[in-house]
Simulated assay, not measured.
Amino acid sequence: MDLQKRTAPAPAAELRASDADRDRIADILRDALAEGRLTSDEHAERVEGVLAARTVGELEVFIRDLPAGHPRRAAPAAARPVPADADDHVVAVFSSAVRKGRWRAGRRIHAYAVFGSVEIDLSEALFQYQHIVIRAFSVFGSVEVSVPENVSLRGTGGGVLGSFEVDHLDAEDPDAPVVHVDGWAVLGSIEGRPRRGKLVADILDRVHRKVDRSLRRHLEH
Rank of each mutant, 00 (worst) to 15 (best):
P174F: 03
F137G: 14
E172K: 12
R154M: 08
A113V: 03
G106F: 02
D175C: 10
R102S: 11
L204N: 03
E119R: 11
G141W: 02
G158D: 08
A77I: 13
K100E: 12
G155Q: 05
E165C: 08
P83V: 05
G183N: 09
L66W: 10
L122R: 04
S189P: 03
S117L: 00
I109S: 02
R72N: 11
E149I: 04
A201N: 05
R196K: 10
G155F: 01
V114I: 15
H180N: 10
R135H: 10
F94H: 14
A84C: 05
E165Q: 15
S189Q: 10
A75E: 14
E165H: 15
P148Y: 04
V200K: 00
A92P: 11
I120E: 00
L126S: 12
P83L: 10
A125L: 07
R108I: 02
K198V: 11
G69Y: 07
P148F: 06
V139I: 13
V145Q: 02
D167Q: 15
D170W: 05
V139A: 15
R196V: 00
V181Y: 09
V186F: 13
G157M: 07
D167A: 14
R73F: 15
V166N: 11
K100R: 15
D88Q: 14
T156S: 14
E144C: 03
A97Q: 08
V145I: 13
V151A: 04
E124S: 13
E119H: 07
E191H: 09
F164V: 09
S189R: 10
F137N: 15
I190F: 08
A75Y: 14
D121I: 00
F164N: 12
V82Y: 10
F127G: 07
R104G: 05
D170G: 04
L169N: 01
W103F: 01
S146R: 12
D202G: 01
G162W: 01
S138Q: 04
A125N: 06
H110I: 11
V151I: 12
S96M: 06
I109M: 05
L66H: 06
A84P: 01
P76R: 07
P67Y: 09
A97G: 12
S163C: 01
D170T: 12
F115K: 05
D65L: 13
F115T: 03
V160T: 09
S152L: 08
P194K: 00
V200G: 06
V98G: 10
A136P: 02
G158I: 04
D87C: 08
V139W: 06
V114L: 15
R72Y: 13
R107T: 06
V133L: 12
A86I: 02
I203E: 07
A75G: 12
L122P: 09
R108G: 05
D167C: 07
D88I: 13
H168R: 13
G197P: 00
V82S: 10
A77N: 09
F140G: 02
A136M: 00
S123A: 12
V82R: 13
S123I: 01
P76F: 10
G188P: 02
H110G: 14
R107E: 11
